[in-house]
Amino acid sequence: MDKWENNRAWFLVLPVFFIVAFSAIIPLMTVVNYSVQDIFGPGQRVFVGTEWFEEVLGDKRLHDALWRQFLFSGLVLLIEIPLGVVIALLMPKKGWGASASLVILALPLLIPWNVIGTIWIIFTRPDIGLLGAAINTMGIAFDHTASPIQAWITLMFMEVWHWTPLVALLAYAGLQAIPEAYYQAAKIDGASAWSTFKYIQLPKMRGVLTIAVLLRFMDSFLIYAEPFVLTGGGPGNTTTFLSIYLVKIAVGQFDLGPAAAFSLIYFLIVLLFSWLFYQALQNVGKGDVK
């Protein structure tokens, strides 16, 4: 779609620009400042240049956490995006069924993240938790605090349970925005359900799916509270994701310089991959849209 050339449109954007910049720019500058200084106390700081960045980039435990993080976010996207779209397609389009589905979907999203972890601790306990007890009854010894594989599986279940509804809600709203005329045209052409999906629904959902992919990537890459509460990064370090490791450095050891350098590198990684996803989703299937 061609857009109108008009620089006065900036006036519509200015309020948004100011309210976001207010909270964004000064804290970012402060963190950049921390990352190049050694801070001993108020008023006692030494410029250290790129020392913290070098220290952080050479940290083996950080590399491990980074690979775990990529694996985690990759799995999250591969599972949640298709599952969310399927659920959205299954949901009724109108009537009380649609209302009920929307409310049910929203429930897991509304629980504060630290509480999610706490609820899942008890939900997965083999003695008094529903899931833990059910798995034990099936004859599988289940204890996610001892087995890294089980810890990962539990985390993935929690994550998919918690966040797939977000993808489904977005996809559903996107589907609802498709005019009825498109479906009628497809029906007249005798299109199958699959080609209706491929040529009408999927291209029309491109906008909401871009947001869903970016949101799920960013939030899963930055995930902290849920795994921290559920597994505490263990057993061993097997579920220590980047944020958990970052907090260990920033709060546990109170190394503000390295933690700031770490934060900036972390931020740049998220930025780079979000940008790549964004570009890819902007260009994919451009030919399919008439």
């Binding site: 857009k3 006065r8 900036w10 954007v13 902290y224 944020s243 770490f262």
Partner: peptide, 26 residues
């Protein structure tokens, strides 16, 4: 969604970058 203006693409993406920083140090 409707207009082209100076820096529109950059500002649009910049907005979203504000969700990308790990909170702890900020």
């Amino acid at each position: 969604s409707r207009y082209h203006f100076v820096g529109d693409g950059q500002i649009f993406f910049w907005l979203l970058t504000n969700r990308m920083a790990p909170a702890a140090v900020f």
